[in-house]
């Protein structure tokens, strides 16, 4: 069974903009896939269909065999607990420190505080921010903020990690460091999908690359 499977997926937003057309693809468990394409090609939309942030208007999106496009609203939180999401706009909460940002997925899943604290520290350690757990995200550098997002995405030990432009707005050295992190997660069996407009970055990893062009998979 594929980790993620798109079958003839189309997405038309209210207002008529057609972001995806006839997208069919499969991502196997343990794969590391780059999703590339020009700005507006539909990369973000494709990623948003997987955690059911958006719903397809055509076709089926399957995650671990479940049709998430038709999933009932109460079931969606449980789907998302098995996914790690790194957002393009980071979505860090600035009214709380690094630790409190990372603990949120565990608190929402009802993990006991002592257990959660251990896992938060392990996640912060993995991204090299263990000494910054009390810092407010606003006081962290751009690279550190991105790593904090990654810590929050992996703290739930998801089987699938989705990252939307994780290296935008940071310099090349930091970008390489972050990509190395994703490769490490992939090395321990996590399925990773990274959307990026940086073709060079994707090429360096010799991983599978899916290119989107005006909402279609380019061959």
């Amino acid at each position: 069974m594929s980790a993620i499977s798109f079958k003839e997926v189309g997405k038309r937003y209210p207002g008529g903009h057609e972001a995806l057309r006839g997208v069919t693809l499969d991502v196997e468990p343990g794969d590391m896939v780059f999703l590339t394409g020009h700005s507006g090609a539909g990369k973000s939309t494709l990623l948003k269909l997987i955690p059911a942030v958006e719903r397809p208007t055509q076709g089926a999106v399957l995650v671990n065999g479940q049709n998430v496009g038709r999933m009932r609203a109460p079931a969606i939180p449980y789907l998302r607990r098995n996914l790690g999401l790194v957002f393009q706009d980071q979505k860090l909460l600035h009214d709380r420190n690094a630790f409190e940002n990372v603990v949120l997925p565990l608190a929402a899943a009802g993990v006991a505080p002592r257990d959660a604290a251990k896992r938060v520290r392990a996640a912060l350690d993995k991204v090299g921010l263990l000494d910054r757990e009390r810092s407010n995200p606003a006081t962290l550098s751009g690279g550190e903020q991105q790593r904090l997002c990654i810590a929050r995405a992996i703290v739930n030990r998801p089987s699938i990690l989705l990252a939307d432009e994780p290296t935008a707005n940071i310099d090349a050295d930091l970008a390489a460091e972050i990509m190395a992190m994703f490769r490490d997660f992939n090395g321990v069996g996590v399925t990773v999908i990274i959307a990026t407009h940086d073709l060079g970055l994707a090429a360096r990893f010799a991983s599978r690359t899916i290119r989107l062009d005006h909402g279609r998979v380019a061959r």
Binding site: R80, R81, P105, A108, R152
Partner: peptide
């Protein structure tokens, strides 16, 4: 923002 992020990381309504 807190409500939005909570939902995205798997919090129930």
């Amino acid at each position: 923002d807190e409500v939005e992020v909570s939902r995205l990381v798997g919090a129930t309504d």
